[in-house]
Nucleic acid binder design. Structure first.
Lengths: 224, 224
DNA sequence: CAAGTATTCAATGGATTACTTGAATTATAG
DNA sequence: CTATAATTCAAGTAATCCATTGAATACTTG
């Protein structure tokens, strides 16, 4: 009996070790940034290296580490290797980690406030209000992420104008409706930049609370 | 503009660093075991040390580490200090980590199979079947965890008989109904031990899939 | 207040692991 | 065969982490 229990105990310990390895793959800021990008859409190593300001070699090695923990998967696409989340559960895990961190670290709260200063200038719209507003045709819903991310999945009814092209496409935006902008998530500044520009030009503007990943996680569908 | 962006970028990096710290608090098998125990019920340092087979000093230090990441909280209770999860979101995080690990590491699957050998001897009951079976009075639902954990929250309708007292309380169990046993979760062996004993004595038995934490996470209530 | 118990602290030693970079290598498309 | 993308390798530095120990602190009970 005690032998059997020891056997069980060893298996149990083995499992904890494996789960700890997954956690330790998450325990690096660069890798979390990579994951955060991959939640938005699959990307090549080169893309990821640029967006995260790392060398390609370094990016590649961090990706290997994530792959080893089965958090991401890779697929060759011509000259490029395209990385993506290995499973939707990974997105959930990342959102949970973030929400635990946000909720509980007072330190984060302060950092977040500093980071969000800008945001509080704008009114916000809750996800559950969106369908109603769209149906009544009272707003223009604007996805200001890079077009690649829009294509890989966006909120139904949204129009894609990446933030850096926005100033050249102002004439496409109805002047009589409020513009509701969104981007990746709570730490994404694209929407704030866009709303800055638009409100300076006289539009009524608001920001969608949260972003695409949270929208999806809340059980709403994305459009492709 | 580029200055502003740098500022933003720094804040963003700071956040990733903080989240990585939470992850690294999770990146140790002993701490995960402690968390797993705390998901069941609050416990004293001494309890935790015994159950995880560590020295008290070592246990205490791991708990400090978890506390620093705001994953657990402590409260003095007479002579003892009682630790508990800092927030229900922590339970969710742990379950997600586990499910990502299980789903994705082939290695875990194998370890799990070895660990579960025993279990496959018994029929299982899915959580959603439970209410019906209980209402029809077709089963006896048995919580075989230590009484402390039962008291801190159990599935409605369950009877508490800790596994090590079971042999002395056989006469309390109706012989004409199937016994459905459950314990902490998928890695807990108490239920298997109990069913071993009972089926040897002629009872019809089955095991509840999963355990208390998963039950609660699935949105069902616990009784106190 | 004194004794006893529970918990934490501080310091050690040692091992281990982690991260980054630049150069060499592999893989693919044209 | 050449150019580009990605991975691997080697190397070095840094950093972290962990278990143990013995002592100190905090608390409760009598």
């Amino acid at each position: 009996m005690s032998l059997a229990m020891n056997g069980k105990r060893q298996h149990k310990e083995h499992l904890y070790i494996l789960f700890a390895q997954v956690a330790s793959a998450l325990a690096n800021p660069h890798r979390l940034e990579l994951l955060d990008l991959l939640v938005q859409s699959p990307r090549t190593v080169d893309d990821l290296a640029q967006e995260s300001h790392m060398t390609v070699a370094n990016t590649s090695q961090h990706l290997q580490r994530l792959k080893q923990a089965n958090l991401v998967a890779d697929a060759r696409d011509g000259l490029y290797v395209r990385y993506q989340l290995a499973d939707p559960a990974v997105a959930r895990l990342w959102l949970d980690l973030r929400s635990v961190g946000e909720k509980q670290l007072a330190e984060v709260e302060r950092a977040l406030d500093a980071y969000r200063d800008h945001r509080h200038e704008f009114a916000t719209v809750a996800p559950e209000e969106l369908p109603i507003l769209l149906q009544r045709d009272e707003i223009t819903l604007l996805d200001v992420r890079p077009r690649l991310e829009y294509q890989s999945g966006h909120i139904p009814g949204a129009v894609s104008i990446p933030v850096d092209e926005l100033e050249f496409h102002l004439d496409e935006i109805p002047r009589d409706k409020t513009v509701v902008a969104y981007c990746r998530g709570p730490y994404c500044v694209y929407a704030d930049q866009a709303l800055d520009l638009l409100s300076g030009q006289g539009w009524k503007v608001a920001r969608l609370e949260e972003g695409v990943a949270e929208w999806q996680q809340a059980g709403y569908d994305l459009e492709k």
